[in-house]
Design a binder for these strands. Structure first.
Length: 261
DNA sequence: CGCATTTGACCAGCGC
DNA sequence: GCGCTGGTCAAATGCG
């Protein structure tokens, strides 16, 4: 009996240590975000200086296109089970399917069309199609911005393992990492708006070309947006906590203090 | 019976 | 003008 208590106490101690580690990681994440932000600011300043010089030299300046976050459709990649042939992705919102194309010009896989049905007036639409390179990857293209919140009751996953996982990485589709290398974040924990996630193909393409300015256009508003950063941090913490607690054979119902964000 | 999904038809935009 | 393609509509169908 005493031995069991000691074991449990030892486990509890480890959980507490893990909790502290997570807080440190969160602080590090926050710090890195700030550094990234300041770095982007420096790049921005440099570009502005270059632009000023060009103006002074009298050459014609082509206006750098602004990235309209509200207008540009965003793409999100969902990794699904290879045997799962459905085009449904659980992204936290409720969608009504209103159409499907069997094939499209650039992709032989069927494309499904969805409207957000959480709110009747919500203008958001999404298209879902399988990736050409990897059939287990669903590419969801979102258009518009939700004019309502997300209903968390609808977000509760039926199991502890999410059926679909967002790919938080910027690797080319031909070089997808193994599952163990992929950060799988349960979107149900994230309250962010899908249109705030800009992991588009063109971002990757621009990244390949080494274009800082394009990436900056996407990243800068994100790191300034607490609505993106905070839920992301929450989701990361929850994901890490889940893994940690599984390791020690405890679940999240121990009443341990949540990391203060 | 009500709701969601499927699927063929229809329409608009675009290039030739 | 014609054909192709992407997007949407709406009737039919399936399911709980």
């Amino acid at each position: 009996m005493d031995q069991e208590v000691e074991t449990l106490e030892a486990k509890l101690q480890r959980v507490k240590e893990d909790n502290r580690t997570l807080r440190v990681m969160l602080e590090t994440l926050s710090s890195k975000c700030e550094k990234l932000q300041s770095h982007l600011q420096e790049i921005n300043n440099e570009e502005q200086q270059v632009g000023t010089k060009s103006d002074q030299s009298g050459s014609v300046l082509l206006a750098r296109p602004e990235f309209s976050m509200a207008q540009k459709p965003s793409q999100i990649f969902f990794k699904t089970h290879p045997k799962d042939n459905s085009l449904m992705v659980k992204d936290g919102y409720q969608w009504k399917k209103y159409g499907q194309k069997k094939v499209t010009k650039d992709n032989p896989s069927p494309r499904a069309y969805f409207k957000c049905s959480l709110a009747p007036s919500c203008p958001v639409k999404k298209r879902v199609q399988r990736s050409i390179q990897d059939k287990s990857i669903l590419v969801a293209t979102y258009e518009g911005k939700h004019n309502h919140g997300v209903f968390h009751d609808l977000l509760k996953p039926s199991s502890s393992i999410p059926e679909t996982s967002i790919m938080i990485n910027n690797l080319p589709m031909t070089n997808m990492p193994n599952d163990k290398d992929t950060v799988n974040i349960d979107l149900a924990l994230c309250n962010w708006d899908q249109t705030d996630i800009r992991l588009c193909d063109d971002v990757k393409q621009q990244n390949d070309r080494g274009s800082k300015s394009k990436i900056e256009g996407y990243v800068s508003p994100l790191v300034k947006d607490p609505d993106f950063i905070m839920p992301l941090a929450e989701a990361v913490v929850h994901s890490l906590k889940s893994q940690t607690y599984k390791q020690v054979g405890l679940n999240l119902n121990l009443g341990l203090p949540e990391p203060h964000l």
